[in-house]
């Protein structure tokens, strides 16, 4: 394995700096939200991680199709990397959302469309890794992984729409006409700066982690092949 490319090293450092700036903007620069207080500040990281994780999951579904057509293990490694990083980010999203919901909605969890879909999505991709763990042959592991990521990636948005459709027919306890009661709020200009910067920062951090994870996958592949060669 060659040493880290210089671009990646730079990206590592840039990601750390961006994370620092984004934290500063979220915790200090943005004004305190009047109704909810300081807890609203988790919103910036919440959205940042959610956006990148969803992009990662969509990317993984695309890699599924590409792998099933091209049958090149490279695409499988891209997919695993995308799903793993997204899974970590989405975990942060869910936990932050739950922490925010406690003072805002007075409950850690409600079964509303987004929360439920988030939990189901997280479970789908955990199942994805459990499936892969049970298979030794790399080609079969890649094929099954691609099939499951495709099925899961199609099912998650349908789950979301299904829950939303049925919950709009039967009104939910939370979220009447009043947006404030729902925990919604109007963003000031400073909040918007922190918001968009968090989106940008997490996109860069995601790319950086993703790149590192792909390199790890490549290394793993190399070790596995050498292992085969030595044992033969």
């Amino acid at each position: 394995m060659q040493d880290k490319p210089i671009t990646l090293k730079v990206l590592d450092i840039v990601s750390l700096i961006l994370l620092g700036i984004s934290t500063y903007l979220a915790l200090v620069f943005a004004p305190t939200e009047l109704v909810m207080g300081d807890v609203q500040r988790v919103f910036y990281f919440h959205i940042g991680t959610a956006w990148t994780a969803l992009m990662g999951f969509i990317l993984a579904a695309v890699f599924s199709v590409v792998y099933l057509i091209k049958k090149d293990l490279k695409w499988d490694r891209y997919q695993v990397a995308a799903i793993e990083v997204s899974l970590v980010f989405f975990f942060i999203t869910i936990v932050l959302g739950s922490i925010w919901a406690r003072p805002a909605w007075n409950t850690w969890w409600t079964w509303d469309p987004r929360l439920t879909t988030a939990a189901v999505t997280e479970l789908i991709y955990i199942a994805y890794f459990m499936l892969r763990q049970g298979i030794d042959d790399p080609d079969r592991r890649a094929r099954f992984g691609a099939v499951y990521a495709l099925v899961g990636g199609l099912s998650a948005p349908i789950t979301f729409f299904a829950i939303r459709l049925f919950r709009t027919i039967h009104p939910v306890v939370i979220g009447g006409a009043n947006a404030e009661a729902e925990g919604g709020f109007a963003m000031t200009a400073d909040m918007r700066v922190a918001f968009f910067f968090a989106l940008f920062a997490f996109t860069v951090i995601f790319v950086d982690l993703y790149w590192n994870r792909i390199r790890l996958g490549n290394l793993q592949e190399k070790v596995e092949q050498l292992k085969l060669k030595v044992t033969l």
Binding site: T23, L27, T32, E33, L34, V35, M36, G37, D38, V39, Q40, R41, V42, F45, T49, V88, F91, I92, V95, L96, I99, W100, R102, P103
Partner: peptide
């Protein structure tokens, strides 16, 4: 008055950083 929810905020950021 704006409620003091800084405890939740600190917990949230702590978990986010620890996880990463």
């Amino acid at each position: 008055p704006t409620p003091d929810t800084s405890g939740y905020m600190i917990a949230g950021y702590a978990i986010a950083f620890i996880t990463m």
